[in-house]
Design a protein around this nucleic acid. Structure first.
Length: 426
RNA sequence: GGAGAGUUGUCCGAGUGGCUUAAGGAGCACGCUUGGAAAGCGUGUGUACGCCAAAAGUGUACCAAGGGUUCGAAUCCCUUACUCUCCGCCA
């Protein structure tokens, strides 16, 4: 969430950011509301602190009086302090209430988009940041989408996924499973080469972690929730990995922090149907390798560019046609300051599929996480957090299967062959 | 799942209602001392939110978390989390 101090001092900057997210004048009032509640909060605290200071002093005096044997005077003072307790209780309740109200308001305000983020309402307004400038693959008439290839070669079974778990769950088998595992290992090895430390985190997280990275409260309902244990299945490795640094004060020399991890990702994604979501296009559980960076604010945009390069490299090596979108204000996620989406061309479906989303959250997550660093003068500042998919597996599999299909089978990209142990699925 | 013992600052560790402003030690930083270092000595050493134009300063809260008792709680009571030991179960 945004820092109240920033909001108080720069209300117009915040409003300009919210306009980019298509807030109308009426909705913008949330900013003034926050400032008003904050003023109330500070005033309440000042009064409460004063009362508490007085009562602390009185308590001390009572102790001294008892020790001096002056019970009468002590009892008199006791009566006075007791009488003031009601007012303290009231003020405490009021302060508590204002603090909660302020937090609710702040949680409802999304991150301020970076200046580079284009205006726009939805996905149609996203800017093509880097187009695919070579010809798109041409497949023969006989080419089929990946769900048909999956059945033809018996490598992915959607029916069994549905039988065992439900619609939206898939089962990989044989060479399909091996391909999935090969991609995971390839992505992890590439991340390791780029200097990322590999993490295997818990796949279930507590509420504090889900709040820390911003899945709660705004994305409640998109996560699977284990009620008996009050735990959430992770929608992305970003959640457990970034939360390593919840409530942490780093030293400047701890930067750069580069972490990666493969996890299954669980998403409820209610309400989608049709060909858009067929096959692997949208599933409840998919594998993903994530890269996470914790950075000094002065470095975060440099690092963002570096992350884009890393993802480009992966797709180049796999030989998949891709383009990069810069998301517009209306499509940029709640917690991100800027997001670049990578889309891969899936030639049989003739569709672009999102396979990576790389974002700089600036201080929005770190403020929730209380993730800070100490500068050379010993002052504390919020760090910047960034993350990106490198990459999301299911859709990559779809594109690899479709784009590389031939009469004689599906050709495995060269870089993957050492990981799969076979060069063709037939 | 059952029984018991714990959780104090950067770390170790004392602390059973007011002489605690959290003892003592270690670490760290700075200074003195030294040819230089070690030892020794001295000083300082957290987080959050207020007040103040700001710095200086100052107030409040924080002894796992949240509630409660009391004029006053690290200390007493309740709930929860986590750690350890033993038993049970288990890949």
């Amino acid at each position: 969430m945004l820092e109240i101090k920033f909001l108080r001092e720069n209300p117009e900057v915040v409003k300009a950011g919210l306009r980019k997210r298509n807030y109308d004048e009426n909705a913008l009032q949330v900013v003034d509301k926050a400032i008003k509640v904050d003023a109330d909060r500070r005033q309440s605290q000042t009064s409460l602190d004063k009362l508490l200071a007085e009562s602390n002093q009185a308590a001390k005096k009572i102790g001294a009086l008892y020790q001096a044997g002056d019970r009468e005077e002590a009892d008199k003072l006791k009566a006075i302090v007791s009488a003031a307790k009601g007012e303290i209780k009231n003020l405490e309740a009021h302060l508590d209430n204002t603090e909660k109200q302020l937090e609710d308001i702040l949680l409802s305000i999304p991150n301020i988009p970076n200046a580079d983020v284009p205006f726009g309402k939805g996905e149609d307004d996203n800017e093509v940041f880097q187009a695919w400038d070579k010809p798109l693959p041409e497949l023969p008439e006989s080419a089929v989408p990946h769900w048909d290839l999956a059945t033809k070669y018996n490598i992915i079974d959607f029916g069994l996924g549905a039988k065992i778990a439900g619609s939206g769950f898939v089962l990989f088998r044989g060479k399909g499973a091996k391909l999935e595992r090969a991609l995971i290992n390839f992505f992890l090895d590439e991340a390791e080469k780029a200097g990322y430390e590999e993490i295997i985190p818990p796949l279930l997280v507590n509420e504090a972690s889900a709040r820390g990275t911003g899945q709660l409260p705004d994305k409640d309902g998109q996560m699977y929730y284990a009620e008996k244990d009050d735990l959430y299945l992770i929608p992305t490795a970003e959640v457990p990995i970034t939360n390593i640094y919840r409530d942490v004060i780093l030293q400047e020399e701890d930067f750069p922090i580069k972490l990666t991890g493969h996890t299954p990702c669980f998403r409820r994604e209610a309400g989608a149907h049709g060909s858009e979501v067929r096959g692997l296009n949208r599933v409840h559980q998919f594998d993903k390798v994530e890269i996470v960076r914790i950075e000094h604010p002065s470095k975060s945009y440099e690092v963002l560019a570096e992350m884009l390069d890393h993802v480009r490299g992966l797709l180049d090596k796999l030989g998949l046609p891709y383009r990069i979108l810069r998301l517009c204000g209306g499509d940029t996620g709640f917690t991100a300051a800027i997001t670049y989406d990578f889309e891969v061309y899936s030639a049989a479906q003739k569709r672009w599929l999102e396979v990576s989303s790389v974002s700089n959250f600036e201080t929005y997550q770190s403020n929730r996480l209380k993730l800070r660093y100490r500068d050379s003068e010993g002052k504390r500042h919020l760090a910047h957090t960034l993350n990106g998919s490198a990459l999301a597996l299911a859709r990559i599999v779809a594109a690899v299967l479709e784009n590389n299909q031939t009469e004689d089978g599906i050709l495995i990209p060269k870089v993957l062959v050492p990981f799969t142990g076979f060069a063709v699925i037939n």
